[in-house]
């Protein structure tokens, strides 16, 4: 499902203008990473996609729905949003009930809901934890519960707000796998992240926000190489991109294979 954002402005009640005219177009099935400094407006922007925030002016369309005219409950059938802080999201007494809440609330038939819950639990590695109270799990596992409870809703658009924060290598690999699975199913995935290496390795398109405006928007290989412009929003290129640049590579390398391919060529 596509998302169209046109000249979106948003002002918090304190008078702080968090979004200053954002226009972006995200196609169905795209994998987009949203980067930028703390307070740039990343979370404010995506909270317009599921109706938690309403535009001061401008518009947001989720498919053919004008988000400003839809209730949060209605938008929940199209947009799943995984909060940055899982404690703002979780409320059930055990993991199984928590993950089942979303699909049940959307009115899916029992068999479909069962299948979705099972898939979400297995993708997130929670199958053996269904009976545990989420608050007896570590914060890092609670993030996976929050993630599972949203992907179980099987929405065409899924938003992750800093999914890799505080996670170890194995869990980050698991999250990358979840995103790849959603991609294979044709879902539109939007991920807010400060983990630029994760961003480079898992997303084709990167949008950089700065002070409520779009600073850069394009293929990851182009955006992540713009060291000077990215610095304006406190973002640095990925480790291997910086290393390639230091070594005088002409092209922007994003991952290990691209890096080693250039090394092999230049050694010839």
């Amino acid at each position: 499902m596509n998302i169209e954002v046109r000249d979106l402005h948003f002002v918090y009640p304190t008078g702080f203008e968090a979004l200053k005219g954002i226009s972006i177009s995200i196609g169905a099935g795209e994998q987009v990473a949203l980067v930028g400094q703390n307070g740039a407006g990343k979370t404010t922007l995506v909270r317009h996609f599921n109706g938690l925030l309403r535009p001061a002016s401008g518009s947001v369309f989720i498919g053919d729905w004008d988000a400003a005219r839809c209730s949060v409950a209605k938008l929940a059938s199209r947009v799943g949003y995984v909060f940055q802080n899982p404690d703002e999201q979780l409320f059930s007494r055990d993991v199984g009930t928590e993950v089942r809440f979303g699909p049940r609330n959307l009115g899916y038939p029992k068999e479909k809901a069962d299948g979705l819950v099972e898939r979400a639990l297995s993708l997130t590695g929670l199958t053996d934890k269904v009976e545990i109270n989420p608050y007896d799990l570590s914060p890092t596992w609670r993030k996976m519960v929050a993630l599972a409870s949203v992907i179980a809703m099987d929405t065409p658009v899924v938003i992750f707000d800093e999914p890799t924060t505080g996670q170890d290598a194995a869990t980050i690999a698991r999250i990358a796998h979840v995103i790849a699975e959603l991609h294979a199913l044709g879902r539109t995935v939007i991920t807010i992240t400060h983990d630029i290496d994760f961003c480079a390795e898992n997303f084709d398109r990167v949008i950089a926000l700065s002070n409520g405006q779009v600073l850069l928007d394009g293929p990851a290989g182009e955006v992540l190489g713009q060291e000077e412009i990215l610095a304006r929003t406190y973002v640095e290129p990925p480790q291997l991109t910086r290393l390639g640049k230091r070594l005088g590579f002409k092209e922007t390398v994003r991952n290990q294979e691209e890096f080693l391919a250039v090394v092999a060529r230049s050694a010839r």
């Binding site: 290598a169 990925p238 480790q239 290393l243 290990q256 080693l260 090394v263 092999a264």
Partner: peptide, 29 residues
């Protein structure tokens, strides 16, 4: 454990003989 991309790319390069065996693996840029 996770390791930096500098360390992992050099380890893989060493396996492919693109990193000198007598140079320690890097941890910084």
């Amino acid at each position: 454990f996770g390791i930096s991309r500098y360390t992992s790319v050099a380890r893989e390069a060493r396996r492919r003989k693109r990193w000198r065996a007598d140079v320690p693996l890097p941890v910084t840029l």
